[in-house]
């Protein structure tokens, strides 16, 4: 019996729901055979995969340690918690949920501060005037340090803040903050504004692979299988299937649709009778349908695609490139 292939997923909240929905769309149904309170699960119909339900920061640490093979976690945590992250993990694919920006926010009253260069100057002046440094409340020590160093800002101190960071300036425990925000509403409610070029990271949930996990042949095979399904699903979601048949449908028209709408023809050019199957990004569906009818089509059908399996497996290729 081989060691199991472990996928770590968030243990609670919206992140768990979104993650389970994401895997389900890829035909990977996560179940907890021993009940909802269990923190171990499996995938229906796939042996040898163990699902570990953990907190997002634990997932990140387990990935860094190579204790799990794949995991779902935010890029903010990857960049914050793993030194030299790119040597330890590979970000395989952004998942389109769990959006959050890590930003530098200062009091709205600081009308003299618009960008990081202003903040740099204020930090220096503050240090001279008050005989202490500006304090930044955050839980993102490493991201803050890296970002401030990149802007050449020296005169600041970090104050650890585990929660309700945006309240720190009003509470007088810090002058400004570095925190995550989705809409900025909470920041505004606390009298804070985002510094213009102060977005440190645009983060979202990612499918992440641990480079230092045990990647034997069995593990690679399992990863290939899982990533094949995810890729097929991701590709399917990126397109709608468009079918039509009319005499004027030829290679030239296809070329035009390709350049205008990013259309692909997975099965090649139109047949001699002008029959074709196209994959079209959802946002261009109506424009494409209009174009095809203008050029002579009587009927155009559009359908959702369940999966697109291709010979290549771009997600697995990304993983394999990072493994020894």
């Amino acid at each position: 019996m081989n060691a199991p292939f472990v996928i770590a997923v968030p243990a609670k909240g919206r992140l768990q729901e979104n993650t389970e929905a994401f895997f389900a769309r890829a035909g990977l149904n996560l179940v907890k055979p021993r009940g909802a309170r269990d923190y171990r699960g499996t995938v229906v119909g796939l042996d040898g995969i163990e699902i570990a339900y953990l907190s997002a920061s634990e997932i990140t640490q387990q990935l860094a340690a190579g204790a799990v093979h794949l995991g779902v976690t935010g890029e903010d945590l990857v960049r914050e918690l793993i030194p030299d992250a790119d040597t330890k993990v590979v970000l395989i694919e952004p998942l389109g949920f769990g959006f959050a920006n890590v930003v530098v926010a200062v009091p709205q009253a600081w009308i003299d501060v618009q960008d990081m260069a202003d903040l740099d100057d204020v930090a220096t002046a503050f240090h001279q005037k008050h005989d202490r440094k500006l304090r930044i409340a955050t839980k993102y020590f490493n991201l803050t340090r890296g970002f401030f160093a990149a802007h050449g800002i020296l005169d600041y101190r970090i104050v650890e803040s585990a929660g309700a960071t945006e309240g720190a300036p009003a509470a007088g425990t810090a002058e400004l903050i570095v925190d995550i925000t989705t809409t900025g509403t909470t920041l505004a409610a606390n009298g804070l504004k985002i510094v213009e070029d102060g977005v440190i990271l645009r983060s979202q949930a990612n499918l992440v692979a641990a480079r230092t996990a045990l990647w034997d042949d069995a593990a690679r095979e399992t990863a290939r299988l899982v990533l094949d399904r995810i890729a097929a699903q991701a590709r399917a979601r990126a397109f709608r299937e468009v079918r039509t048949r009319f005499p004027g449908c030829d290679a030239a028209l296809l070329a035009e649709a390709r350049t205008r709408y990013g259309v692909e023809a997975p099965f090649g050019d139109p047949t001699s009778s002008g029959m074709v199957t196209l994959h079209c990004p959802p946002k261009h569906i109506h424009a494409l349908a209009m174009l095809l009818r203008e050029r002579g089509a009587e009927t155009v059908t559009v359908a959702d695609i369940e999966y697109v399996f291709t010979r290549d497996n771009p997600l697995y290729a990304r993983l394999e490139a990072a493994l020894p």
Binding site: V106, P107, W110, I111, D121, V122, A174, E175, G191
Partner: peptide, 26 residues
């Protein structure tokens, strides 16, 4: 004037920098 404008806008100085300090640098 700057000090007054800030107080008209109902913006209180938070986090260690006084309104005077902000006005000065502005």
């Amino acid at each position: 004037l700057v000090t007054d404008l800030l107080s008209i806008a109902g913006i209180n100085a938070v986090g260690g920098r006084s309104v005077a300090e902000i006005a000065d640098r502005f």
